[in-house]
């Protein structure tokens, strides 16, 4: 049994999301190979070769993979798919874009966002915004699977020394073209892997008020997130959205500020270890999942929290 993992990277570096898929692959058992498709992507391939537990790295280095366009990457993966029992990737937006395309090219019904491996054919996945857990068994000969990052620990980044093998590029499908990106620049930790997340909701009233949350986040070394309502209203960019249709996070500490706790939001954060809610409405559903609830006006409580952290020696 050999498993292929589609690496997530920016050509120069491997993205940490790849490490969660490696752990899921280890639970399946078998040889683990990682495909790095990119342009000028030796850096990412070198990173991948160091991951503990990986057997081999395949590198496809060609212009058509520079921006991970689904049409081109899926063609490449489908060409080598027959060599593998399973094809895995962590469910990032990039993998969500590419993997179903691979599955369809191989006539396979993909299993999306698994949260648990039962055996090589049986997996648990959340459905209905995490309000139910389905145990599903697939009989497809190649299993195409995306992995929920927060459900599997990251594999060790160091310790391996897998050989890197070049494979032939599959060409440009000529169907789509990359134009550009507008990435939110941030010095803060990545939302999906941060140990602490502080999120703001509609209660924040405007983007201009987010600095009070950011001050707290910076004292705690936390990432900043948001509810859909806060993103829709333009307070913060789209990549801040936590929830069923945004990012799934499971930090040690999640602080929800001015967020009511709709099921779609809870779907993205209810696996956090400790949840704090700050909300002025004591009936808000967020309090049903909060370990510590503070019923207060956030415009008073959040600056107070900032001061209290300062007093306790947190300076960021």
């Amino acid at each position: 049994m050999t498993i292929l993992i589609l690496a997530e990277h920016d050509n120069t570096q491997l993205r940490p999301a790849t490490l969660n898929a490696v752990t899921a692959a280890k639970e399946l058992g078998g040889e683990i190979e990682v495909l790095v498709a990119g342009s000028g992507c030796e850096g990412a391939a070198n990173d991948a070769s160091k991951i503990e537990g990986v057997t081999k790295i395949l590198i496809a280095d060609s212009d058509e993979y520079a921006n991970a366009l689904a049409e081109n990457v899926a063609t490449l993966v489908s060409k080598i798919a027959e060599n593998y029992s399973h094809i895995l990737a962590t469910a990032t937006t990039s993998a969500k874009n590419i993997m179903p395309r691979v599955a369809a090219l191989k006539d396979v019904q993909q299993v999306s966002e698994i949260s648990e491996v039962i055996d090589a054919e049986t997996f648990v996945r959340p459905i209905y915004a995490g309000n139910a857990m389905a145990t599903v068994k697939t009989s497809d000969s190649i299993k195409v699977i995306t992995v929920r990052g927060t459900s599997f620990e990251a594999a060790q980044e160091e310790g391996g020394s897998a050989p890197i093998e070049k494979i032939e590029a599959s060409g440009d499908a000529g169907l789509s073209q990359y134009i550009g990106s507008e990435l939110s620049a941030s010095e803060r930790p990545d939302l999906t892997s941060a140990r602490i997340v502080v999120s703001g909701g509609r209660g924040m009233q405007s983007g201009e008020n987010f600095p009070i949350i950011e001050a707290v986040a910076d004292k705690l070394g936390a990432a900043v997130g948001a509810s859909r309502a806060a993103v829709d209203a333009g307070y913060v960019p789209n990549d801040y959205q936590v929830g069923q249709t945004g990012k799934v996070v499971a930090p040690d500490l999640y602080i929800a500020v001015g967020i009511s706790g709709a099921i779609q939001h809870l779907a993205g954060m209810k696996d956090s270890k400790v949840i704090v809610a700050i909300n002025k409405d004591e009936e808000a559903p967020i309090f049903q999942v909060a370990d510590f609830g503070l019923v207060a006006d956030l415009f008073k409580a959040v600056p107070e929290l900032d001061d209290e952290l300062q007093k306790n020696g947190f300076s960021g």
């Binding site: 366009l69 990032t92 937006t93 990039s94 000529g174 169907l175 789509s176 073209q177 990359y178 134009i179 550009g180 990106s181 507008e182 990435l183 939110s184 999906t192 960019p237 789209n238 990549d239 990012k247």
Partner: peptide, 15 residues
């Protein structure tokens, strides 16, 4: 809408 922010692409019709 991608994990890091926004990305713009152009795709040939039909799509």
């Amino acid at each position: 809408e991608v994990d890091g922010g926004l990305e713009t692409i152009s795709v040939k019709l039909p799509s």
